[in-house]
Amino acid sequence: MGTGDLFAEFDQGIMPLAEGGVILRGFALDEVTGLFADILDIASRSPFRHMTTPGGYRMSVAITNCGDYGWITDRRGYRYEAIDPATSKSWPAMPSSFLALAQRAADMAGFPDFWPTCCLVNRYEPGAKLSLHQDKDEADFAAPIVSVSLGLPATFLFGGARRNDKARRFPLNSGDVAVWGGASRLHFHGVDTLAGGTDSLTGPYRFNLTFRKVR
């Protein structure tokens, strides 16, 4: 399905982000309970932690990973590693539920044959945010990014190819899935400061699954 077809289906829950990018409203809503159980299992083996950026900034978002690789940051820089530095073990395997959802969403957005090798799991608490950034630590940019929201609602910021391009604001609810690739693969994006609240499943948190093909 091409991007033009997706734009025509706006009233069916598909919202355009940019060329090559869409939000699939409620796409994972029926799966959030199982996805959350898988998140808890992953975190029991590779716990959430607040990583430090190369500049020494402590991230307000807590992070863990699953899959062949995990994304990490510390004083040495941003990168992917096959071993979790907190446990000295491989990251937990990507659950089949995660992989199937990511592939279905990518296919719906016009990116068939998506095989992510990393799922970055972010945990937001009220006051946490993610500044505008590019996902550019992967070996190539042919594959899209697939991002799944669970728990508290948030405001997704999606800009352009330059940091100073004006970012548009999109509300994200639990079960929404954003996919971007092609012309918008390296667009800057982020998450505005999370407001307080309580979700019936995740409590005071928002979780985000970001699927990437590292190499």
Rank of each mutant, 00 (worst) to 15 (best):
F158D: 00
A167H: 06
A8R: 11
A102S: 11
G151Y: 01
T3L: 15
A37D: 14
T52W: 02
R25L: 04
I39H: 10
T198K: 14
W71F: 12
R75N: 03
H189Y: 05
I39C: 09
G151T: 11
D5A: 13
S174P: 06
T3E: 07
A100S: 14
A109I: 13
P204C: 00
G127C: 02
A37T: 12
G196K: 01
C119Y: 06
T198Q: 12
V214E: 02
F10A: 13
P144L: 08
L35N: 08
L172W: 14
S88M: 09
Y78C: 07
F98I: 06
R49L: 02
W180Y: 10
A28E: 07
P47Q: 00
D68C: 03
C119P: 03
N122I: 09
N208P: 08
W180D: 06
F27R: 07
S97R: 15
L186N: 05
H189R: 07
P95R: 12
D41H: 02
R206C: 14
W91P: 01
S46Q: 03
G77F: 05
S200H: 12
F156K: 15
N164M: 12
G159T: 04
G20T: 04
L101K: 04
G182S: 04
R45P: 01
F141I: 04
P47S: 04
A100T: 12
R123L: 06
S60Q: 10
C118I: 03
T3N: 12
G77C: 03
R45S: 03
V22C: 06
P92T: 06
V22D: 01
T193V: 14
S184M: 13
G20H: 03
K213V: 06
G160Y: 08
F114L: 02
H50E: 01
I63K: 04
S97H: 14
P54Y: 10
M51Y: 07
D30I: 00
N164Y: 09
V121K: 04
H187M: 01
F36D: 10
L201V: 10
A178M: 10
Y78E: 05
G196L: 03
R25C: 08
L17C: 04
M108K: 15
L152N: 05
Y205T: 04
P16D: 00
K129H: 12
M51F: 05
R185F: 06
M15Q: 15
R185C: 06
V146A: 15
G67L: 06
R169A: 08
I72Y: 07
I63P: 00
N122P: 11
A105Y: 10
A106H: 05
W91A: 02
A37N: 11
Y205V: 00
M15D: 00
A62V: 01
G4L: 12
